[in-house]
Design a protein around this nucleic acid. Sequence first.
DNA 1: TCAGATAATGAACATTAATTCATTTCTTCA
DNA 2: TGAAGAAATGAATTAATGTTCATTATCTGA
Lengths: 214, 214
Amino acid sequence: MAYRKTDTVEARLADNRKRILAAARTLVAEGGWPEAQVSHVAAAAGLATGSVYRYFPSKVDLFVEVLSTVSQREVDVIEAIAGSEDSPAQRLEAAVTTFVLRAMRNRRLAYALIAEPCEREIDEARLTYRHAISAQIMRIVRDGQACGAFRAGIDPSIAATVIVGGFMEGLIGPLSPLNADFAGADRDGGAVPALASQIAEVCCAAVAALPTPG
Amino acid sequence: MAYRKTDTVEARLADNRKRILAAARTLVAEGGWPEAQVSHVAAAAGLATGSVYRYFPSKVDLFVEVLSTVSQREVDVIEAIAGSEDSPAQRLEAAVTTFVLRAMRNRRLAYALIAEPCEREIDEARLTYRHAISAQIMRIVRDGQACGAFRAGIDPSIAATVIVGGFMEGLIGPLSPLNADFAGADRDGGAVPALASQIAEVCCAAVAALPTPG
DNA sequence: TCAGATAATGAACATTAATTCATTTCTTCA
DNA sequence: TGAAGAAATGAATTAATGTTCATTATCTGA
């Protein structure tokens, strides 16, 4: 009488869930939010539309999980940099450069997750990760102020927010699907590293201490 | 046989159009985009829903005009500052401070026009004005580099973009309706001017030249 | 005042996807 | 193997607004 999920079934269910997430991510990475439709996801995952709702309570939940997974990885990367042993100036430079370079590796996805207009609830989920990134930058700023490498008298929270807004905005143009300048994949030695280092330089200067005169 | 609009009618039509725009603006300023519905606008303007379509081809056109009117004024203000006789450093500081202070005078409206999720086409119209503001900042950056007040070797376009993103992001938290910290109208001598000057300081430092050593 | 022309109305319509759910198919285990 | 439970299906439903348009009201010039 009892029905208990076999390992086989359990595995298939888990696989379905993964495939749905992967399909959703791929669709966003290829066509942005306009492609992010439940029926498309289902088709791409080889399931019926209604089946998606056996794995995710709603479209928003599904895509928030996609966004969270990708974003959390970026937060982790920045956190590792923020917690490293390098000088605050080096850490700030590395955090910004790394973020820009990584975003440019998957432009369409990064554009969708960072800047493309989307549903309110997904947009709100973005804030979580922006805050998390900002918190790591703030930590670097605090450390820098403590050791005199960064100017005192600036609110670290404001500085971090401005820096995060700055490098995100610096990315948006190059990320935009409308912008063809960065379409070529000349990631190494090309325009992308130059962009990253320029953005990082401006961000670092925003908080750097003035060299002690004399 | 012929029908020619009387001055009276002409005036009434013009007045209707203005009232529609004013109502639309007021609704956005009070409730943001969720309130920006054609039927609400019509009711607030004392007209029927369908009548709005005698003055504007679509909802998007109407609200793009609202956004344009408000945004262009801000562009004009910044342009005046950018073209003034002050030093580049003073102009940059003034541009950022002024923008922040003006935005904080009508937080809900500024939030809607700058950051609140909205329809794709309205969002695209935002970019126009962000670019226009960026162009003015870039002009200041160029002038500053030319006279040695700002560091050479930075792409003025990138610097301007990062600065604009920075102060916009610095504003978003304080502008957000969710944020109660700035709800009080202590505009003078209070938290708002302090915020503006902190944001401006960070932005200015991003491009300022290092004092010549020795 | 009246015919011709325009303006205003607002209920009905159109659109677009998300979501539901009655039905079908698959799984389990005695 | 078959009865009961679970999973999958996908067409129909829902919902929320922007937009239309047949109808009504108003205006102009003679």
